[in-house]
């Protein structure tokens, strides 16, 4: 009895111990991946704002707050996107307009090569957070957003519509969040900026739940509107 049990227990122990060591532990909290933290970014933008204000209006009052999401007709450059281009990681993909899943989650394209815009939310270019998601991989290989993690602050993302408008968004920061504990409102909710957030999967794959443990989010902000 002992002769069989000891090796079996030893084997099982080594199996579980090495499995836990080899598989990547999910992050417990949001990890900021880019070098510039949000605080630094906030400081930078506010410094920038202050400079322009000083030059233009000689405004002596120091402001430290982010303004609320207001509705103003002059800030609406929104488009219905049909093509997404990210030169830094060689992505050039169609964009589908998608809504909710049956469970009320965000729907994604049924194929691995397209990306999906969350159509009930904000139009890219409008004030607020617009969101585009894409797969990181399929069952056997990489998908459209496999290299999304390679992006860094300052990289540009182009979005096109049917009418020849090109919006340029610039990467501000990247972060990953636990799947069940992501700040949905920060990613999809109101914002005073004209923002686009790209989402894909990251972390380790959970076979049981059939999903990745984390989501990678690339936060970008509108920097240019052109007709091409």
């Amino acid at each position: 009895m002992k002769r069989i049990l000891t090796p079996v227990i030893l084997g099982l122990f080594v199996f579980f111990a090495s499995y836990f060591l080899l598989s990547e532990e999910p992050l417990k909290e949001a990890g900021v991946l880019s070098t510039s933290s949000q605080d630094e970014f906030m400081k930078e933008t506010h410094a920038g704002e202050k400079e322009t204000r000083d030059a233009l209006e000689n405004e002596p009052i120091q402001q430290n707050y982010t303004p609320a999401a207001t509705v103003s007709p002059d800030k609406q450059e929104g488009i219905v996107p049909n093509r997404l281009e990210i030169p830094a990681i060689d992505v050039d993909a169609p964009v589908q307009s998608l809504g909710y899943t049956d469970e009320g989650g965000m729907a994604v394209p049924a194929n691995l090569t397209d990306t999906g815009w969350f159509e009930p939310g904000t139009k890219p270019g409008n004030q607020g957070n617009s969101v585009i998601a894409g797969h990181v991989d399929g069952r056997s290989g990489p998908a459209v957003f496999f290299d999304l993690k390679e992006l860094s602050e300052g990289d540009e993302i182009y979005l096109y519509d049917d009418e020849g408008t090109r919006l340029t968004f610039t990467v501000e920061k990247m972060a990953s969040y636990p799947f069940q504990d992501s700040p949905i409102r920060e990613l999809f909710g109101p914002s005073s900026g004209q923002r686009l957030n790209l989402i894909t999967c990251t972390g380790s794959y959970n076979q049981e739940a059939s999903t990745y443990s984390e989501r990678l989010v690339v936060f970008t902000v509108l920097t240019e509107v052109e007709d091409v």
């Binding site: 090495s18 499995y19 080899l22 598989s23 990547e24 609320a68 999401a69 207001t70 509705v71 103003s72 909710y100 899943t101 469970e103 009320g104 989650g105 965000m106 729907a107 994604v108 999906g116 969350f118 009930p120 939310g121 904000t122 607020g128 957070n129 998601a133 894409g134 797969h135 990181v136 991989d137 399929g138 069952r139 056997s140 290989g141 990489p142 998908a143 957003f145 496999f146 969040y177 799947f179 992501s182 949905i184 409102r185 990613l187 999809f188 909710g189 109101p190 989402i199 894909t200 999967c201 380790s204 794959y205 959970n206 076979q207 059939s210 999903t211 990745y212 989501r215």
Partner: peptide, 28 residues
């Protein structure tokens, strides 16, 4: 002043992967 209090948002994050490139299977 017209403020926006909330916007349309999903209940869950999207399912954006099938694990084909993840090392978990290798770890196993």
């Amino acid at each position: 002043i017209l403020l926006q209090d909330s916007s349309a948002m999903p209940s869950d994050m999207p399912e954006t992967g099938f694990g084909g490139t993840n090392q978990t299977s290798n770890a196993l």
